[in-house]
């Protein structure tokens, strides 16, 4: 990884340049990926299974490392400096396919844990904000339950609220609705749509075409560790330029 000087706020929220990653077993998962995400933009990443979508967005908050290229998040270069990584993780929220709520903590404690520990905010202060966030995602009445007592859709909304409670500047979503029953997909997508409308910068890996069409500013298609096509949603879904994109769309539409 090239040591990049820490630059003052660049206009882009995320700048990935020529990112290459090999897994320890030698698998070349990312083969020179470029992506720029502007402030307030919603970018949807699509692509066949195994194309490296998860690997790519997980490099943004250093859950995966990479060997070549550079990534800058909100002006902070991602390198091996642990303090930089912590600084970036504070600003980047992530929502997982499996929710990953902390099952031994109540919903409210799931939300307040990180702000109190990491941002050193007072518990009372965070509690108010957490209740407001639960209100916003429509589950304030479940605040004192435990994750295991909630439905999948409710759990994913708690997970979104938990990320928001850290007041991140970017939210990453890795297939947030893929493990939900169909009737719960909508409630989660509505929350995400609301966030986009409020100007949150979001990178979303999803196969929800309706969401991509309505909410995304750009759609990116990845295949075999590379970006194949990058376009506005209407352009991408109605007039895909590349053979690989047409092939992929014919499978999911």
């Amino acid at each position: 990884m090239t040591a990049e000087p820490k630059v003052a706020k660049s206009p882009a929220m995320i700048e990935a340049r020529g990112v290459e990653k090999w897994y320890p077993n030698g698998f070349h998962a990312l083969r020179g990926v470029d992506l720029t995400v502007q402030r307030g933009e919603v970018v949807v990443i699509m692509g066949p299974s195994g194309s490296g979508k998860s690997t790519f967005i997980r490099t943004f908050n250093a859950l995966e490392d990479f060997q070549k290229g550079s990534i800058t998040v909100d002006g902070i270069a991602l390198n091996d400096d642990l303090r930089q990584i912590d600084a970036i993780r504070r600003e980047v929220g992530m929502v997982f396919q499996q929710f990953n709520l902390f099952p031994h903590l109540s919903v409210l404690d799931n939300l307040t844990l990180a702000p109190v520990l990491v941002r050193k905010r007072s518990k009372g202060d965070v509690l108010n904000q957490a209740m407001a966030l639960l209100e916003r995602v429509g589950i304030a009445e479940q605040a004192h339950k435990f994750p295991g007592q909630l439905s999948g859709g409710q759990q994913q909304r708690v997970a979104i609220a938990r990320s928001l409670c850290m007041e991140p500047r970017i939210l990453l979503f890795d297939e947030p609705t893929s493990s939900l029953d169909p009737e719960m997909v909508r409630e989660v997508l509505e929350v995400m749509q609301g966030l986009a409308a409020d100007g949150m910068t979001m990178v979303v890996v999803t196969h929800e075409v309706g969401f991509a069409r309505q909410v995304a500013d750009r759609v990116v298609l990845m295949a075999d560790g590379q970006v194949v096509e990058e376009a506005m949603p209407e352009q991408f879904f109605d007039h895909p330029q590349h053979e690989r994109s047409r092939q992929f769309l014919s499978q999911i539409l």
């Binding site: 912590d86 997982f96 902390f102 031994h104 990180a114 520990l117 941002r119």
Partner: peptide
């Protein structure tokens, strides 16, 4: 695995993530 990842992605450092999230479980 996702428990540690979720904790780290919220900004907890390794000792915090272990002591507050992973070890209790």
């Amino acid at each position: 695995r996702g428990q540690l990842e979720a904790a780290r992605s919220l900004g907890l450092n390794l000792p915090q993530a272990l002591s507050r999230v992973v070890l209790p479980q």
